[in-house]
Simulated assay, not measured.
Amino acid sequence: MLNIVLFGPPGAGKGTQSEKLIEKYKLVHISTGDLFRKHLGEGTELGKLARKYMDEGNLVPDEVVIGMVDDKINASTHLTGFIFDGFPRTVAQAKALDELLQKKGTSISGMISLEVPEEELKKRIRERGKTSGRSDDQDEEKIKNRIKVYNEETLPVAGYYQEQGKLARIHGVGGIDEIFSKICAVIDEY
Rank of each mutant, 00 (worst) to 15 (best):
L59W: 10
A94S: 11
M111L: 13
K103F: 02
K104R: 13
K48G: 09
T80I: 08
A96Q: 08
T90H: 01
G81M: 14
I108R: 06
G47R: 03
Q93C: 01
M54T: 09
E42P: 13
K95I: 14
L59G: 04
L79Q: 11
L97G: 03
L40G: 08
L79R: 14
F82K: 05
R37Q: 04
G110M: 07
R37P: 06
D85I: 15
L97K: 02
D71H: 14
D71S: 12
A50L: 00
R51H: 09
T90F: 02
D98H: 05
K52C: 06
L101S: 03
P88F: 03
V64T: 01
N74Y: 13
L40F: 03
R37S: 07
K38F: 00
A50K: 01
P117D: 12
P117Q: 08
I83C: 12
N58V: 03
E42Y: 07
T106R: 15
V69P: 02
L59P: 05
K104G: 07
V60C: 03
D55A: 11
S76E: 11
R89P: 01
T80W: 07
K48Y: 04
T106K: 15
L49W: 12
N74R: 12
S109W: 10
A75H: 12
Q102W: 00
L79C: 14
L97C: 04
I73L: 09
A94N: 10
Q93S: 02
D85P: 14
S113D: 12
L101A: 02
E120Q: 07
D34G: 02
V116H: 15
I73A: 11
E56S: 12
D98M: 02
K38T: 01
S107W: 02
G86W: 02
A75K: 12
A50M: 00
I108S: 01
I112D: 13
G43A: 15
K104F: 04
A75R: 15
G41H: 04
L97F: 05
T90N: 01
E56T: 06
D71G: 08
E42I: 12
S113L: 10
V91K: 04
L49T: 14
T80C: 10
T106L: 12
E120A: 06
D85H: 15
H39D: 11
K122P: 13
L40W: 07
E115P: 07
